[in-house]
Design a protein around this nucleic acid. Structure first.
Lengths: 210, 210, 210, 210
DNA sequence: GATGAATGAGCTTTCATTCAT
DNA sequence: GATGAATGAAAGCTCATTCAT
């Protein structure tokens, strides 16, 4: 009853809106830098400079470096995964869904290459041991699981061959997308990313077609 | 009569043999540690301890940390690539060569997971810009190029479909192998690595078969 | 007619009463925390949280951390010293007064151990040099002086031996109480604190008895 | 066989002698500063400056700040305790031993005031919980235990009254010495420290004499 | 050549204090 | 008056690299 007695609800609202905006400013700054560098080469000082705040300010918003990046990852990956899953669970023909999902991932990687590099390391002992990035590992696993179910259903309905396990297919698709996109991005041929989609689709589709 | 006049050739030899031995001792030590940890978490002190030399000694053999690891990578990758290329250039049926190469890569990854994780980061600006690991990037590119030629020849001879570019195929194969092996290693199901080879082969082969 | 003309005395009163209440709320919060931790491990943020106000508010009531704690100490010590002095200045037999005062101090220490620990550091250069805690040093000195006079009077009236200087006796008594209480509290034998009173009294009394 | 092969034993010796000297230089520097300030106000940087080395160098000799100070304390306290125990275990008349030990402690405090202040805080939860200073706590306890036995023997032989428990006496003596010495030092009347010995002795002796 | 002590820039993090709202 | 976000100067600590021996 004490501390709120003199503050109008609107003021509180505006403040928390501003706060949320700044959180996003910081996350965006971290993301921009992450785009260019390895996690271990990014300093909090650098993020602060990019976000145009003092170093100490970061700690008003995130308990530490790892927590900050966890949010960066989760914030970016969640909408991607949601969109992809909506696709998988639609009624379109399987090949169509495949094309759309590959497109989705490729263009995401196009603009978020650093994420995928980092995600490749999530299996390292440091991370699989319960730790700061456990939440992220789980997020990715969850997505993979639901993707696996999409392959399962397609096999059951006879849309694709059931020679290979659905789990293998989900992983293989992921590997192909990541690998190809990474290569393209690394070589700075990002304009060609779209042109990579059809070959992947063709290779993969021929590989699984009934 | 010149400044070398007092050193016998044999002594020089023995000295340089000893020197080379110590170089290898250090490289081997670095490799053992790299097997367990991220590059940025390995300290020169730690390598020195593992190699049973003083920290300063490392700098008599390598100009710095990055140069040391460059050698580690090159030393391990060269024999792998050589063996794989010998395979590609043999006269066996293409599908057979494919199986062998996939096997080769998967089992290498099995015992050198850290290498692949590191290699995934080589495309980052830090590295593609001329830098300490340029040599490594070139080594990998060279391998990829020669692998590409193997696909080219197989298309020319009609052994495989020529719908997809050989360069795409070389990269797609690499992505599949790395992606699948990494997953397997991450999940600690290393004993199952062999069982991954056949699915990859099947998916890929169906995708490219004439 | 002057600038206060629009504020009724009662309103002013109520305001200053409220202000004083909040001051006390803050002091009480700081005291509760001080009970558990070293001064240098207590943050203003923590005090604010405990007092259920914002961090900035503390600075409307106290110029800074040290000033805040100065008040904490003075507020707690003043009643203790007042009670002890009332005792010393009573007409009871000296040994009885001694017992009561020892009891008073021991039980105070029992529930305010942190205070005494802190007081032990007041002699450090940081503090004896005129500084934020000068007021506290003076308060303690004042108490000691009046306690010294109690010993003086007892010597003059022949109640105790006058071999030792009254100033020495006052300090020795304080040392004994603090030392023994601290030990007891440190050892978590706080339930035994009462049983420490009699030995102290006996040792001290035999030491000064006529 | 590798790393030592080229280094003569003398060189090794000289090096470790130098190392030990520097250790002592650092400990001495830390001690000088500790003499003036509270532990929590001393920074590693400051110690390094006083010892005329770089900040990082400190960490070549001690794993951290606490470990450094632990050594400071143990190094200074051990000889004091040894000397005092030799005294206690001698055959001199008890009163004589008492005088010597009081003298010993008082003059030690005279030149190491900071130590005693710190020691007073050793009972705090932070420290009694197993932690960096556990070793120090044990050292002090060990001394107190042996001092307690000295009182015990004196009671058994009838040299002193056995009304009070020997443990109480050991603690009371310590409290008196510390308290009185601290006061004297705080007031900068260090020249008068010697004159404090006799009053303590008189008070304490009358208190325990048979 | 080998050694390992010394360096110092860099890191992440904490926190008393200020100040716009 | 109250708020809490922002500040920035520390702090403790790590480590690649240098260099006298």
């Amino acid at each position: 009853m004490n501390r709120d007695s003199e503050i109008s609800p609107e003021a509180t609202d505006r403040r928390s809106r501003k706060r949320e905006e700044k959180r996003q400013t910081i996350i965006a700054a971290a993301e921009r830098i992450f785009h260019e560098k390895d996690l271990s080469h990014i300093s909090m000082e650098e993020i602060a400079r990019e976000a145009d705040v003092a170093a100490g300010t970061l700690y008003n918003y995130f308990p530490g470096k790892e927590a900050l990046f966890l949010e960066v990852f989760v914030n970016k990956l969640t909408p991607l995964f949601d969109e992809a899953l909506a696709e998988w669970e639609s009624d379109a023909p399987f090949k169509e869904k495949l094309r759309l999902v590959v497109n989705l991932h490729m263009s995401f990687i196009h603009s978020h290459k650093g994420f995928y590099e980092f995600l490749m390391t999530l299996g390292q002992p440091d991370f699989t041991a319960p730790g700061p990035f456990t939440g992220l590992v789980e997020l990715c696993e969850g997505y993979l699981t639901r993707q696996t179910r999409a392959f399962e259903r397609a096999q059951e309905s006879g849309e694709i061959s059931n020679t290979l396990s659905p789990k293998f297919l989900a992983r293989a698709l992921r590997s192909l997308c990541w690998g190809m996109a990474t290569e393209a991005v690394n070589r700075r041929k990002t304009q060609d990313l779209d042109s990579e989609v059809e070959p992947i689709l063709e290779l993969f589709w021929k590989g699984i077609a009934q």
